[in-house]
């Protein structure tokens, strides 16, 4: 599903590579934690999957497509198959829960009838039933992140990328967020989550890929956060 082959990324005006000869394979339906200290290249990895950034060397395949050969024109189609969740939720403050989720479908031109059918379903999936008409400011951080997850998942992507989704949320609420991610993963969606949260990684016992200074220092199935190798 996601295939990195010797990928390096050096940002302009930086001498140290953000990713340094990284090779990783993530299969369909897997749940993978991307861990590592700040600046180790986790977000860079996720941006490369989205083709928001281009690698300086190496090949990236996502959903069977060679990103180097994917024309700019087709990048939106790639992104429709990938959902994204971030630490800062990125909701539209002037739209309510329903509208925020529906927005993702409206802007890719889905018919209204389809939107009316699937948006309530996904709002229920993330556990926000009854709150569809709340504005973002009337929701807790955890609830806002659920809205963001609903928006990321509403188009049934094959891959869900989560960049520190629990970074702004207290540990108790984080468990709820992880339950939703797990639920999404169980529908067959590949989930790739960058995190600093040791407790979560330890409790989920999923595959862990650890980066340090842009290099992979550990790739362990059913791993924990800080294990020595």
């Amino acid at each position: 599903m996601i295939h990195f082959d010797n990928v390096s990324k050096v940002y302009a005006n930086q001498n140290r590579p953000a990713l340094d000869h990284v090779s990783v394979d993530v299969d369909k339906g897997e749940f993978v934690f991307l861990v590592g200290p700040s600046g180790s290249g986790k977000s860079t990895f996720l941006r490369l999957v989205l083709k928001e950034e281009r690698p300086n060397s190496g090949a990236i395949h996502v959903a069977g497509k060679d990103l180097a050969k994917l024309s700019n024109f087709k990048v939106p189609h790639l992104r429709r198959r990938i959902g994204c969740v971030f630490q800062d939720f990125r909701l539209l403050p002037k739209k309510n829960v329903y509208e925020n989720v529906a927005f993702a479908l409206e802007v890719i031109g889905k018919p209204r009838r389809f939107i009316r059918k699937v948006v309530p379903e996904v709002i229920e999936l993330v556990g926000l039933e009854g709150k569809a008409h709340r504005m973002p400011e009337e929701l807790s951080g955890g609830e806002q992140q659920r809205v963001a997850m609903a928006r990321a998942f509403v188009n049934r992507p094959m891959i869900l990328l989560a960049d520190e989704p629990t970074g702004n949320i207290d540990p108790a609420t984080s468990i709820g967020i992880m339950k939703v991610l797990d639920r999404i993963n169980r529908t067959g969606t590949t989930v790739l989550m960058a995190t600093h949260d040791a407790a979560i990684v330890d409790s989920m016992r999923k595959r862990v890929v650890e980066l340090e200074d842009g290099k992979i220092v550990r790739d362990q199935s059913r791993g924990v956060y800080g294990q020595a190798y």
Partner: peptide
Amino acid sequence: IMRLVGASN
């Protein structure tokens, strides 16, 4: 957000 969810240019 539009870019992220794959809205066309």
